Amino acid sequence: MSTTLLISDLHLHPDAPEVTEGFLDWLARRASGADALYILGDFFEAWIGDDLLDHVDQDPTGNAALAIRVAGALRRLADEGTAIYLMHGNRDFLLGHRFASAAGAKLVTDPAVLRFADEPVLLMHGDSLCTRDEAYMAFRRQARSPAWQEQILAMPLADRIQLAAQLRQQSGEANSNKAEDIMDVTPAEVVRTMRDHGVTTLIHGHTHRPAVHALEIDEQPARRIVLGDWQPDHGWEVEIGPDGDPVLRQVTL
C-alpha cells in the first residue's frame, strides 16, 4: 500500500530536546514503512552550513551533534526503503547537498508539484505566500541569493554561529511587533500561485496555523492544507494514501 507522509516546521534545536526525541520516535514508529517522507522546510531552527558536520568540537551550541544524530536516523529510514525529500524553509535555507546525502535524502525545490492518484499537488514551505510581510520578503530575496549565501558560507564557523543567534533573536523581536494577518498567507497570492501551477490542492507549512481551508479557483473547488509546527507533546503530519486524498492530523509524541 503506497503511503506518503509530509511534515514541516520541527525547528529542531538543542534547546528543545523533547521535540527531537519525539521526532525520532515518530520516525521509527510512524514513518517506517512509508514509501516517501517529505520535510517541507524549517526542519532545523537554524542551519549555518553543511561543514558544521565536521566541527562538533567547535560548536558549543550542540547543533552539530544534533544534526549528525538526526541525519543518522533519516539514513536508517532511507536504507529501509523510504524515499526522503527535504525542502528549504526560512530557517534552514543553507541546508545543502552534503547534509542531504548524509541523511539519505534529496533536496527538492520550493515550490514542487507532485502527482498522487494522477492529481497534481503543490508542495511549498509557505513563506513566499506571506507577501504582506514586506520586511520579511526583502530578507527572503537576500537570503535566497546565491551570492549572499556564498558570502555567508565563507565566514568563519564561529562568526556564522553568532550570526545565526542574532538572526534568530531579530526574527523573534520583529514578529512580536507584527500584526497576525501580516504573518499569514496573502489569499490572492495563494490563488495566483495555485492557478499558475494548475493545481487545486496546496500543502504547506511556515505559518504554524494547521488547518484545511476550502477555496475556489476559477469556479473549481480547491483546498489549502497547512501543516502545524511541532511541540514537545505533539506534531503534525499529512498522510496521502493510494487514493491520493491528503489527510491532516495531529500526532501524539
Rank of each mutant, 00 (worst) to 15 (best):
A117M: 10
L215G: 05
W26G: 15
A36D: 11
L52S: 09
R192D: 11
E119C: 03
A71P: 13
I203T: 06
Q166S: 13
D15G: 04
A65T: 15
L202V: 01
V190N: 02
A158M: 07
L37H: 08
T201I: 04
S8C: 09
H55N: 12
M87K: 09
Q58A: 15
L37M: 13
E134K: 12
D57C: 11
G205C: 03
Q166P: 06
G235Q: 05
V212A: 02
A46P: 01
G72R: 12
M183Q: 05
G81E: 12
I225H: 04
P221A: 03
V212N: 02
D79N: 15
G22A: 07
A117R: 08
L153W: 05
L202P: 05
Q142N: 10
P232V: 01
D127R: 00
V226E: 01
Q166K: 11
N175G: 00
R75V: 11
E239M: 06
V238M: 05
E21N: 15
A28K: 14
A147I: 01
L253K: 13
A31M: 06
G89C: 12
A73F: 09
R141Q: 12
A64D: 11
E173C: 09
G228P: 00
P242V: 10
G241Y: 01
L227W: 06
L167T: 04
Q169V: 09
A214I: 03
R69H: 14
D59N: 14
A105L: 05
R209A: 07
S32D: 15
A46V: 15
